[in-house]
Amino acid sequence: MKQIAVLATNNSISSDLFGVLDFFEYCNVLWQYQQQHQATPLLHCYLVSPDGTPLQLKQGVSLPVQPHRWQEADAIILPPAYAYNRAQLTAIAEPSRPYLAGLLDVAQSGKLIAANCTGTFILAASGLLAHKRATTSWFFKDAFQSLYPDVHLQLNKLLVQDDNLLTAGATTSNINLCLAITERLVGEHFARQIAKVMLTDPNRNSQIPYMDLSIGQPHNDQVVKQIQAQLSKQLAEPFSLDLLAQQFYLTKRTLLRRFKLALNDTPLNYLQRLRVEHAKRLLETTDQAIEQIVAQVGYEDVSSFRKLFVSYTEFTPGQYRQKFSQEGHFNCCPVS
Rank of each mutant, 00 (worst) to 15 (best):
A87V: 15
F140D: 09
L255R: 03
P317M: 01
N28K: 05
F259N: 01
L112K: 08
G298I: 00
L21N: 05
T286S: 10
Q38C: 14
Q88V: 05
R258Q: 14
D16E: 15
R281E: 13
M198E: 09
P95A: 07
L165D: 00
V29I: 14
W31L: 05
T182C: 14
F239C: 00
K225N: 10
Q319A: 14
K225S: 10
S240D: 00
V61F: 11
D212I: 00
D242V: 12
T316I: 07
L185C: 10
L256E: 04
K157T: 06
L78R: 02
Q234G: 01
R257Y: 09
I290V: 10
D163G: 04
T9H: 02
P80R: 01
S12A: 13
F23V: 07
Q230S: 01
I76K: 02
L261R: 14
S303K: 10
E188Y: 00
F190H: 12
L123M: 08
Q154M: 14
L231T: 00
G119F: 03
I293N: 03
V20M: 15
A143N: 12
I227E: 02
D201A: 07
Q59N: 15
L185W: 03
Q88D: 13
R321Y: 04
F121K: 07
F305P: 07
N264K: 13
A168G: 14
D51A: 11
D301C: 12
S12E: 02
S96A: 15
H329R: 14
F309P: 03
A125P: 03
P218M: 00
Q108C: 04
L256I: 08
G298N: 06
P149Y: 03
T136H: 10
D150M: 09
L250S: 09
S336E: 07
I92P: 02
N264S: 14
N331K: 09
F139D: 07
Q71G: 04
E188A: 09
A170F: 04
D22I: 12
D163E: 11
V224F: 05
Y33N: 11
F248T: 11
A73W: 01
L47P: 01
I290E: 06
P334S: 02
E188P: 00
I13F: 03
